[in-house]
Write a protein that binds this DNA or RNA. Sequence first.
RNA 1: GGGCCGUUAGCUCAGUCCGGUAGAGCAGCGGACUUUUAAUCCGUUGGUCGCGCGUUCGAUUCGCGCACGGCCCA
Length: 492
Amino acid sequence: MDESSGIIKEIKKKVQELRSRGFNLYPSGFRRDITVEEVLNRFGKMDNNALKEITDTFTLAGRVMSIRDFGKAVFIHIKDGTGKLQAYIRKDRVGDDDFAIFKFIDIGDHVGLTGQLFRTKTDELTILASSVVLLTKVQSPLPEKYHGLIDVETRYRQRYLDLIVNDNVRHTFILRSRIIQTIREFFDKENFIEVETPMMQSIPGGATARPFKTYHHTLGMDLYLRVAPELYLKRLVIGGLEKIYELNRNFRNEGISTNHNPEFTMLEFYVAYATYEDLMDLTEKLFLYLLKKLFGQLTIEYQGNTVNFTTPWPRISLMDALKDIGGIGENVLLDNKALIDLARSKGLEIQDNEGIGSVLARLFEHTVEPKLIQPTFVVDYPIEVSPLSRRKDENSEIAERFELFIAGKEIVNGFSELNDPDDQRERFLKQASLRDSGDEEALFMDEDYLRALEYGLPPTAGEGIGIDRLVMILTDSPSIRDVILFPQMRKK
RNA sequence: GGGCCGUUAGCUCAGUCCGGUAGAGCAGCGGACUUUUAAUCCGUUGGUCGCGCGUUCGAUUCGCGCACGGCCCA
C-alpha cells in the first residue's frame, strides 16, 4: 500500500491528519437545495445589483475542479452533474476553524457549500460561501485540469475519470441516452409494444455470427449468448403480438474494431402484415423523428462529411450499386469467374466453394459501402446471404431485403420475413452444410423455430438497427468505443 | 492473423537518431497574497523510462521476444 507515488502519499498524509483530528471524511446526510444548472437558469442573467436583492442562501454540492488560493481567501470551481460554478471562500465568512480545515481540500474532493450569489470583478456568477463542508475525500489525484485525460486506454479502462474530466464525453453519453429514449418514444407513438426475449439461448439464431458459449450447471446444458433476438421475436408475432420491438444487447464472438464491440446494442422491430418496403418508409419516419427531436434539423456533421437526412432516401439495388458506385462492369457482374477473380485481386479471400451471392455481398462491402455517405437503402440481396428473408415472387434468388448505409456504415438490416416453413427448413439445411464445412458463422438448424413457423407466421417485415453505430453518427464519434461506456478490453 | 505506431513523474509531453542511470508544464509540498479563473511570485519533492532477455565496461536509448493500447489491412 505504501508503494504509492509521492503525490498519493501526500494525500494519504492529509487523510491521516484529518482523521486524527476526528474528522469524518465520508459523512452522510448532506442535502443540497439547488443544482448548478438551476442556479445558472435562475440567476445567470442577473447583474450584481439584481443579485443583491436576492437575500436567499443556497446549498450546493459538487466536486472541486480547481483551486486558486489567496491565503485568507480561496476561489474554487465546483462541478455537479449539471454544470460548473465558482465559489468564493473567505476566512472572515466561514470562520477560522472551518477555513483551517478547508485548507486541506484537494482537487477532486466533493464539498457542500452554503452561501449567497454575487458577481466577481470579472463578472462571473459566484457563490460566496458562509459554510463549507467536506463530503468525500479523494485519495487519488485527478488528471490534469488543462490537458485533461487523453490516454485512450485509461479513458476506456477508467471511464469514470474520462467522464469527470472530459465534458464532451459526458455529452456523448447523455446524447446516447436521449437517442434511445427518443426511439422508445417513437415506437410507443406507433403503437408498438416493447418485449424482452432470451439473451441465453440453447440454439443461437437470427444472424450469421459466431456466438459465445456458456454452460448451465443445474440444467446440465450448453447455452449461447444471443447473436440476435430475431427468431424469438418472430415467435411472438406468430403468437399475435403484431407490432413489437426489443432494444437490448447482442453478443458476437468476433473481432474488435472501430465498428465492432463483442457486445453491442441492437434495436429489432417487427410489423405483421407489412413488407420490407413498408419498413423502409417507417425507417425514414423514425430518423426524421430523431433528427427533429434531437437536433431540430435534418443535417449533421460526421467526421468532416455533411449528412443530409431529408427524405426520401435513394433505394438502389445491390447489383446497380456495384455497377454505378463500385464501378464494376456489367460483363464482370454477370460472369461468376470474373467476379471471383476481381474479388481476389482486391485482396478478399474467396473459398473455392463460396457461393456467388456471398462474393457479391463481400465485393459490395469492399467497394461500395465506404462510399455511401448519404442515407441510402440498398435492396435486392442474394438469397444465399439472406437465410431468414422471404424470396421475391418474381426472382427466387433475390430476397425482399434492404440495408441502410450512412456515413459508410451499415446501420440497418431489414426484410420481409420468410414464413414458409418448408423453405426455411431448406435454408437451415444449407446453413448446416456450411457449418459442417467449417463456417462458424452459419446458422444452426432450429427445429423448435420451424415448429413455430408451422403454426403460421403472418406476412411480416422485420428490421434491426445497430444502435451503437447510429449513436456514433449522431454524436460524430469515430470509434464505437467512444459510444460504449465500458468497451471490451484485454485483461491487463 | 498481418503491417505500422505508441508505452518516460499523478496528468500532458520532450529526450533516445549518434549508449554514459532523465527534463518541462500542470498537479503536489513549503512560503507570500481577501475578486482570482491555465491566478501570480519565491522555494521545492517526485521516476523499476511497460516487462524480459541479449549486445556492451555501461542500456530509457541498440537488437530480439513478450504484454497492453491505437490506426490500417485480412
